[in-house]
Design a protein around this nucleic acid. Structure first.
Length: 508
RNA sequence: GCGGCUGUAGUUUAGUGGUAAAACCUCUGCCUUCCAAGCAGGUGUCGAGGGUUCGAUUCCCUCCAGCCGCACCA
């Protein structure tokens, strides 16, 4: 008997605690006080993470005829990041209000001089919104009234804060306080810098990649010329990326070192990109369902046109309902020919393909599904974590903590348990089965303590099945075991052949 | 990066200006015929550094980390 899956109020706390207790995730460098935004994956965590990667790689690369894989270096030529726009675009100038401690993006903070009869009598400011101009105008009129100035007020001219001179910076009021409390715009670059070679000078500056995607673009021609691929086709990569986030938050959701699984799907410039985009969105959604994320937690968010980067034709995020809110999980972007064109211009090497039909050369367009391994990792923990009230035969109610992970990604597929530790007939049969299974699957052998305790231990690790070798196994004909299923706690008897068949079907 | 709160065992928590405690977990042994049983035993430098004090886990300062809010998230 058990209640339906229930999640506690503070699910994140419970997940972080379980992650540490069972060896999924540890804080990086913990014995030195920890390091903000970095994490280590323990014995169970590394298995789960590897399974997520392997499922993606198998489904995205090996099981498709139109996608190939690559692995590119983490440190690339610095010009890659100039061409991609990251050197400029990753450093948003920010403005602080010294009094209110608010922080604004300089390009989202607007201001205008207040001009009466041709004379500047003050400044007004407003944050970017649909009514920025109206707000500025109203503030200007209010300022004129307050200062009791006679004359004709000129219409305000909204400029953003990057266009303010040093003198104007010292006069423009903060939106928070109404007084000139703002700092000049300051740059924050999110790319980690390092130096290549032992000499440290300006010419040796390099960056840890902030995304894996540029590797696919830079190697586009290499792959095209070496692998008998033709459009449409994709290049996929799994690897670490690094972003110097201002504030890492929410456990492994936003960290400074993270792992991406990205694929660039190159299509003809005349292809129906919208159809292709939609197909990839659905492919990604189905894939998330295939590793056990519940449909109820998934939603789509289309970036509004006016918020898109100028080169983007459309970006749709698959959102996931995390315990701390609905957040981005998988971004599927239609990037046009922007990246290949940028690299062609910056390198002087054309990034074109030849169209046999029209005898013309053209730069392919690209659809990019990009997802974070760590975000999927957190999503499956969050969706799978449950605390149930279990009633035993005597009517006692106890809490059962269970991690409902899909067999595809569960760190341990099967636990092999001899019913009793001190009966050699049982342990010998159990060990034989264990030896046979571990050739193909991640399995655990556990003979410690009472059988119920071992079941619960596996529940917390997310192991979908336990196999118990009991007296029926050795005394009755048929050589059958008890198969105990994690979610229902139901028990059935299976033969070794049936067990292997079950695994072959469920673990792929 | 700012503000508020917090930091005692792997986890969840007691406690004190006089060199720290419980439960659970974990490990070892015994026992155990299906859902965290029992018995015996093992494992702990109060986040780090400095200051005040005869003496600091406790009071003060700095730093680090975590949570919440703001801002940020190409």
């Amino acid at each position: 008997m058990s209640t339906p899956a229930a999640q506690p109020e503070n699910t994140m706390e419970a997940i972080v605690s379980l992650a540490k207790r069972r060896g999924f995730v540890f804080q990086s460098s913990e014995i030195y006080g920890g390091l903000n935004g970095f994490f280590d994956y323990g014995p169970l965590g590394v298995e789960l993470k590897k399974n997520i990667r392997d499922c993606w790689w198998n489904d995205m690369v090996r099981r498709r005829d139109d996608v190939v894989g690559i692995e590119t270096s983490i440190i690339m030529h610095p010009k890659v990041w100039e061409a991609s726009g990251h050197v400029a675009g990753f450093s948003d100038p920010l403005v602080d209000c010294k009094v209110s401690k608010n922080r604004y993006r300089a390009d989202q903070l607007f201001w205008s001089p207040v001009v009466v009869d041709g004379n500047v009598v003050g400044y007004v400011s407003a944050l970017e919104s649909e009514k920025t101009a109206e707000e500025l105008q109203a503030a200007a009129e209010s300022l004129k009234r307050k200062k009791a100035i006679q004359g004709t007020l000129a219409p305000v001219v909204a400029k953003d804060f990057t266009e303010a001179s040093a003198e104007q910076v010292s006069l423009i009021p903060s939106p928070a306080t109404g007084n000139p409390d703002l700092t000049p715009p300051r740059s924050f670059n999110m790319m980690f810098q390092t130096n290549v070679g032992a000499m440290t000078d300006a010419s040796s500056v390099a960056y840890l990649r902030p995304e894996t995607a540029q590797g696919m673009f830079v190697d586009f021609k290499n792959v095209l010329d070496s692998n008998r691929v033709k459009l449409p086709f994709g290049i996929a990569q799994i690897g670490k990326s690094f972003r110097n986030e201002i504030t890492p938050r929410n456990f492994i959701f936003r960290s400074r070192e993270f792992e991406q699984m990205e694929m660039e799907y190159f299509i003809h410039e005349d292809a129906d990109w919208d159809k292709c985009h939609k197909e990839w969105i659905e492919w990604c959604r189905q894939w998330l369902l295939s590793i056990g994320l519940p449909e109820s937690h998934l939603s789509l968010y289309a970036h509004p046109k006016e918020k898109l980067a100028f080169y983007s034709r459309g970006t749709v995020d698959i959102m996931f309902k995390y315990p701390f809110g609905v957040q981005e999980l998988w971004g599927i972007a239609a990037r046009g020919s922007y990246d290949l064109t940028q690299h062609a211009n910056a390198s002087g090497k054309p990034q074109e393909v030849f169209d046999e039909a029209s005898k013309n050369k053209f730069v392919p367009h690209v659809i990019e599904p990009a997802v974070g391994v760590d975000r999927i990792f957190l999503a499956v923990l969050a969706a799978g974590y449950a605390e149930e009230d279990v009633t035993d035969e005597k009517g006692n109610v106890e809490k059962r903590t269970v991690l409902r992970l899909s067999p595809r990604i569960a760190p341990v597929k099967v636990a092999i348990l001899p019913l009793l530790k001190n009966k050699e007939l049982l342990t010998n049969r159990a060990k034989a089965l264990y030896t046979k299974l571990k050739r193909n699957y991640a399995v655990q052998y556990d003979d410690g303590g009472a059988i119920g305790k071992r079941y619960r231990r596996q529940d917390e690790a997310g192991t979908p099945w336990c196999v118990t070798i009991d007296f029926d196994t050795i005394e009755k004909p048929g050589d059958t075991f008890t198969l105990r299923e994690r979610d229902s706690m139901k028990q059935t008897r299976v033969t070794e052949t049936e067990l292997f068949a079950l695994l072959a079907e469920q673990v792929y």
